[in-house]
Amino acid sequence: MPSRAERLQAFPPVAVAGARVLILGSMPGEASLTAQQYYAHPRNAFWPIVATLFGFDPAAPYADRLQHLQAAGVALWDVLAACRRVGSLDSAIEGDSIEPNDFSGFLAAHPGIQRIAFNGTAAETLFRRHVLPRLDARACAIERIRQPSTSPAHASRDLAAKLEAWRALVDGL
């Protein structure tokens, strides 16, 4: 019998009380879990993209990058609180191990969230399947947009194309 993958725990949300946008990944990859930082893989385009959108240095210390996002009203989190997975690919997440985060509690504590942006298709799919059915009507009414994944595993779009698509994150806010 094959051994089961290790149970992985995600990070707590990074958010301030006045956050207006929530960016959701699926589950941190191996590099992020090792570094204990969101989007830590050196080829992940997340930090270069949001740094361009919000006007800060993507190479700044991690705590400074988080502060810049919070000052811009952006919160970070993942759809999953825990799961089993070998490697970093979302496709390797074991379906019977999925434990979603508490979005009802988070959204109640952050009533200013106007837009939820998914970092890729997997985050959106996991949210729709495991979170959306549990949310109240107000939370279900929050605008949701799917952005192209910033992961280096999704190389079908270059950085410029991803950045252009991610501009929707700030449109109208």
Rank of each mutant, 00 (worst) to 15 (best):
M1S: 13
S3L: 09
R7Y: 00
V14R: 11
R20T: 15
V21H: 09
I23C: 04
I23V: 15
S26L: 12
M27P: 05
P28W: 01
Q36E: 09
Q37A: 08
Y38I: 02
A45W: 03
A45G: 01
A45T: 03
I49R: 10
V50M: 08
A51C: 05
T52E: 14
G55K: 10
F56R: 07
D57Y: 11
R65S: 06
R65M: 07
Q70G: 11
Q70L: 14
G73C: 14
V74I: 15
V74G: 11
A75P: 06
A75I: 03
L76I: 05
W77M: 09
W77Y: 14
A81R: 14
R84N: 05
R85P: 01
G87D: 11
S91W: 01
A92Y: 05
A92R: 13
I93S: 03
I93N: 04
G95E: 11
D96K: 02
S104V: 08
A109G: 14
H110P: 02
P111W: 07
I113W: 10
Q114D: 07
R115L: 15
A117S: 08
F118I: 10
N119K: 06
N119Y: 01
G120Y: 01
A123N: 09
F127T: 03
P133D: 02
L135I: 06
R138H: 15
R138N: 14
R138F: 05
I142C: 07
E143M: 07
I145P: 13
I145L: 15
R146P: 02
Q147T: 11
Q147E: 13
S149Q: 06
S149T: 09
S151Y: 04
P152Y: 05
H154N: 13
R157G: 00
K162F: 08
L163V: 04
E164D: 14
